[in-house]
């Protein structure tokens, strides 16, 4: 029986050893031929050997194996495959298994041969498939970025058109986008929506392209009829941007038509109130008034900051969404930074 087992191990390309002391083993079965390639002394049945020199990878496995061999429990633990090279540079995939059976501490060293190649091929296929998936995701990401770039260019060109005749500065337009972005971030919006409002908010006054010069460019106060004409810019902007399937343009539509609505329903053009006014428009309503009052215009000097803030507070809950006004005041230091970083150009 014993010799049958020994021949079996030998035919399976397995070196069977018994642990006799820490770091010392006895060869129990005729060693497979590969041991001659990988050991300096060669192994014989019954000889005592140390494996550390020839199979140094096993030194990382022995602490765990010793725990098993010295314990009272029976069982098996495996060491993952490793590649060992012989003197001619040929690679030998090996694996080890520590066994504690019937009180006997055993060690099997196995040449994996074809089974290693099969395992490698399986991993190769799986990993190549994962890499293809990664590459596909990257491609989707690249293309989305390209579409996004197109949307941004479209937004900038629309803004160029609206600024053509208007007195408002490019810096004001950019600040409106950045203030709105700041508020959206603080509200915990998704990155996509934060990005959308940064691009869409500057388009709030795009409808002014439809306002005649004698009203739009008038340096003094507007009379009642002129004010009625001017107020049409919200409706015109809304019409210009409505019906888009691009989320950023749809948001720009909501902002253009809704940024002069008031929380109390006394705004224009649709006298919406409270949360019926889209939140993006409620945000822009606040930051537009803050920036416009803080800036100099041909028809008015810049207001001192304390007066601007007092006005915003006074309009909390009437003109402006009260919760958003509170958030605005929490973010005031950062709002001031935006003004400092992007000042209006003089002259």
């Amino acid at each position: 029986m014993k010799s049958t087992l020994q021949s079996l191990f030998s035919s399976m390309d397995i070196l069977l050893l018994e642990r006799i002391a820490e770091g010392r083993f006895r060869v129990l079965a005729p060693p497979p031929t590969w041991t001659g390639k990988l050991t300096q002394t060669g192994f014989k049945v019954g000889s005592e050997v140390s494996l550390s020199e020839d199979f140094f990878v096993l030194d990382t496995f022995f602490p765990d194996a010793e725990d098993l061999w010295n314990s009272s429990k029976e069982g098996t633990i495996n060491c993952d495959p490793w590649i060992q090279c012989d003197e001619e540079g040929q690679e030998w995939p090996l694996a080890a298994r520590a066994i504690h059976s019937n009180g006997k501490p055993l060690l099997l060293l196995e040449h994996l041969g074809e089974s290693y190649t099969r395992q490698q091929q399986m991993h190769q296929l799986a990993r190549e498939s994962m890499l293809s998936k990664d590459e596909l995701e990257l491609e989707v990401h690249r293309r989305t970025a390209l579409i996004r770039k197109g949307e941004e260019e479209l937004a900038h060109r629309l803004l160029d058109v609206s600024n053509w005749r208007d007195e408002e500065t490019g810096a004001h337009i950019r600040r409106i986008g950045l203030y709105s972005e700041l508020m959206a971030k603080a509200l915990g919006w998704s990155l996509q929506d934060v990005d959308n409002i940064r691009l869409a908010a500057p388009m709030h006054d795009i409808g002014k392209v439809g306002i005649p010069d004698y009203v739009l460019l008038k340096p003094g106060r507007l009379d009642a009829e002129e004010r009625r004409i001017m107020e049409r810019h919200a409706y015109i902007g809304g019409e210009m941007l409505k019906g888009s399937e691009i989320p950023m343009i749809e948001m720009a539509h909501q902002i253009a038509i809704g940024h002069h609505e008031k929380w109390n329903g006394k705004g224009y053009p649709n006298q919406l109130s409270g949360s019926d006014i889209p939140i993006a428009a409620r945000i822009v309503a606040i930051v537009d008034v803050y920036d416009a009052l803080s800036s100099e215009r041909v028809y008015k000097p810049a207001w001192p900051e304390d007066e601007v803030l007092a006005y915003l507070r006074k309009e909390r809950g009437s003109h402006f969404d009260p919760e958003l006004i509170d958030l605005f005041f929490e973010l005031l230091p950062e709002m001031r930074n935006i003004r400092l970083l992007l000042p209006d150009k003089k002259g």
Partner: peptide, 10 residues
């Protein structure tokens, strides 16, 4: 060409 590794090589 990518050649995946299995186990360890020293």
């Amino acid at each position: 060409k990518y050649q995946t590794s299995v186990g360890v090589k020293v």
